[in-house]
Amino acid sequence: MKAIIAGILVTLMLALVFSLPALAQETGTITITMTGANEISISLDKTQWPLGNVASDTEYETVPAIEWCTLTVGGNCNVNTFITGADAAWVSSPTEYKWTLSSDGSNGEDIYGIWFRISGDTTRGPMSDGYVPVTKTESEFWPYSGGSGSSLAPGDHKQFGLRLLTPTYFISGRQMQTQITISAAAA
């Protein structure tokens, strides 16, 4: 009888010896690696453009026009940068009244346009004058398709300015606010 009990205990111990490693291997091997340089960072030296009162169907440019804001690359990896815009909303009641951002820089009734121009870029854009419409779709800021520029390296900087084209008609006396987002991804 003792031999039987001892046999059962040995069998049980052997089973545990094999089952524990099996439990440990349940999740398999997943490899997670950080590839290349590991910090992405950018800075802008200006984020506000208070315009005051504006008239309808009028263009306004930042001062200075194309060296208004400086984008600087930090971190330790090269980056490609992008730009996207949004509708302008009435500050007091954002859901009640807005100006729609046009998809081509043009304007209309409660429709406005925003353009950007990078310093040194004189032929880019639909008018070949360096100005490019900002749209609600994220699009290339720098470098861009068809251009000769390359990704920005840490320490590089780009200066740019903005141009606003106000709607042909809008309700006056309302403070409007919009946001343009500059984004960056590792090149």
């Binding site: 398999g28 997670i32 590991n38 910090e39 992405i40 960072s41 802008l44 200006k46 971190g75």
Partner: peptide, 26 residues
């Protein structure tokens, strides 16, 4: 403050051999 300066680490991450049904965390 009229400027902004931010960073994120890592800039790129690769997950290899992830089986459907499994979860990876980083």
């Amino acid at each position: 403050a009229d400027d902004i300066n931010i960073g994120v680490v890592p800039a790129e991450i690769r997950i290899d051999n992830l089986s459907p049904g499994e979860t990876a965390k980083f």
